[in-house]
Design a protein around this nucleic acid. Structure first.
Lengths: 187, 187
DNA sequence: TTCATTTTTTGATTTTCGTCAAAAACTAAG
DNA sequence: CTTAGTTTTTGACGAAAATCAAAAAATGAA
């Protein structure tokens, strides 16, 4: 889905606001393996994945790579706190497929936020979706078995198995890849 | 902290917007045990806890009460999806102390959002804080032991032990109260 | 195709935590 | 103070999942 269409779905903005916002996004074709941002970077863009797949992760104290979130096409993403407060990002964000990505720079974001208060309506809508998803995740993280959580994930995101490795899915769920492998073998 | 002060801290609004928004909040003194909303209700207000303590929870399939979140003073809260989409709430929200609560009705919220797009800036700021907190929670829920998560909670919210029962804290962390009791005994 | 690398699976063992049950400690109302 | 109700603690046991180690399978580049 292209950005303009996506905007119409998420929040009803005036034609003028919509145009201003969309114009500020720059289109890029980026290869698998490209980092949108890395730990300690100040993340200065907000991104929209038109096509492709991204994954955020960080490294635990014990040196293990832990997936935080997956972003398929039609996702907005940024290192939210880093972007908004110009602080160092805590995650890495890597494209795991060749992707078409739109990005808006922080300076433009600020300018539009001042000129067009409607941008806040849009950001609100994006954050709202994020909050809903995180709420789901948190609910399922309490007192559900690893198996239930895995099955739920696959139901919600049937393509995840084709797009992310078992290890990445496991650490997203907060379990080891051995456990996930055994869950899958059971069926 | 009173609402006006809180607003100044969270987002810089014009004097006019701020006044409009603050005026729409109604002050109430409510007793311990009062439900701000219940499961299946359409939650028609957004709340600000000036003084007191609230807890959201729901009932699991196995009939167990699971705490979703705690709200000390200076917290905004609502059944976010219920409020925004007029759908049935999934949680209960109960005051666990006598409290002073400000509430804004949905109709006023909508009206102000149309008249004063700056309200969205404010909502954005509130949601942003929420998203940060949930991110913290999710990070700590992966591959940290129950004990580490408990100690982290106590460090972040030192008064939680005085304000919530062990069972409520345990289910918030996603562990049983027996396990939490043993963690505490170890020290 | 072959070889090297990465990912996934399998096995044995240990640790963590849940479950069930009952006792102890705490709270609040009469 | 007494009693009933609630919350917390303790114990024995079992289930779920982590860890460590190694084999098997899949992937990708030369």
């Amino acid at each position: 889905m292209k950005i303009p269409q996506y905007f119409k779905n998420i929040a009803s903005l005036s034609a003028e606001s919509e145009k201003t916002i969309i114009t500020a996004f720059k289109r890029e074709e980026l290869s698998k393996g490209h980092f949108l941002f890395q730990q300690e970077d100040i993340c200065r863009h907000i991104y929209f994945i038109e096509q492709g797949f991204a994954r955020t992760y960080n490294i635990s104290d014990s040196g293990r790579e832990i997936t935080n979130w997956f972003f398929p096409e039609n996702s907005f993403l940024t290192a939210i706190n880093s972007f908004y407060n110009s602080s160092p990002a805590r995650d890495f964000c890597i494209l795991t497929e060749d992707s078409i990505v739109y990005s808006m720079a922080y300076a433009d974001f600020k300018r539009i936020l001042d000129d067009q208060p409607e941008l806040a309506r849009f950001c609100f809508a994006v954050l709202f979706e994020l909050a809903k998803q995180m709420t789901e995740y948190i609910n399922s993280s309490k007192f559900q078995t690893a198996e239930d959580r895995y099955l739920e994930l696959v139901k919600m995101h049937p393509t995840i198995l084709q797009r992310a490795s078992l290890g990445h899915i496991a650490s997203f769920l907060g379990i080891t890849q051995e456990t996930l492998s055994r869950i899958r073998a059971k069926k």
